[in-house]
Computed example of a mutant assay.
Amino acid sequence: MKLYIKNMVCIRCKMVVKEELSKLGLHFISVELGEAEVLENISAEQHDQIRTALLKSGLELMDDKKSVLIQKIKNVIIELVHYSEEPLAINFSEFLSQKLNYDYTYLANLFSEVQGTTIEQFLIAHKIERVKELLVYDELNLTEIAYRMHYSSVAHLSAQFKKVTGLTPSHFKQLKYKRRSMLDDL
């Protein structure tokens, strides 16, 4: 049985889900961002126990199909931006459409309607958040960051960074007190 989980955006979240399922005596087949597959059929009582246990960690079971699809879109973006360094061989809209087996126009309209922002704006917000992280780590220069984040140029990255944050990447790097946003707050 598949469980769909909201706010599951990192490796630690996967560990929490695995731990909570194990505590309830459930055997998971897989635990990925946004979903877990368990071997057993889950009773209503177990479902409530899982819901309660996950809520304590800021995670939430989802039942409605639209919410599940929105979370899948978010998870694809998070996975792509934060955990993958491979450039896409096709454009993002085609990639998302293929990955989720839905027409991109449907996905884009649903996402905008429910989230109040576009898929593109959500993607850009995550890319900029990742750029902030890389700037703070101070291991890569701006050219290397632009390449890693698949920007066409440093100028494009800088322009988008300034549009989103109001600061140039160089100025941001100087502001040590500027805090990064949590991924699930974006």
Rank of each mutant, 00 (worst) to 15 (best):
K2Q: 14
I5A: 11
N7G: 13
M8R: 05
R12D: 15
K14E: 10
V16S: 07
V17N: 08
K18F: 07
K18Y: 07
E19T: 11
E20A: 08
L21C: 03
S22I: 15
S22Q: 15
K23F: 09
L24F: 04
H27R: 14
I29H: 13
E32T: 09
G34T: 03
E35N: 14
L39R: 15
N41Q: 14
A44F: 15
A44D: 14
T52L: 12
L54D: 00
K56W: 05
L61Q: 03
M62L: 07
I70V: 01
I70D: 00
K72Q: 10
K74V: 00
V76M: 03
V76T: 02
E79K: 08
E79F: 08
S84Y: 00
P87V: 04
N91L: 01
F92N: 02
S93F: 06
S97E: 00
Q98R: 13
L100P: 07
L100D: 07
D103S: 05
Y106Q: 09
L107I: 04
N109C: 07
L110V: 02
S112T: 15
E113K: 15
V114M: 12
Q115L: 12
G116V: 03
Q121F: 08
L123C: 06
I124Y: 05
A125I: 06
V131I: 06
V131K: 02
E133N: 12
D138S: 09
E139C: 11
E144F: 07
E144S: 09
A146V: 02
A146G: 05
H150W: 13
A155E: 15
H156V: 15
Q160Y: 14
V164S: 04
V164T: 09
P169G: 04
H171D: 13
F172T: 03
L175R: 11
K176C: 06
K178W: 12
R180Q: 08
S181R: 12
M182P: 14
L183I: 05
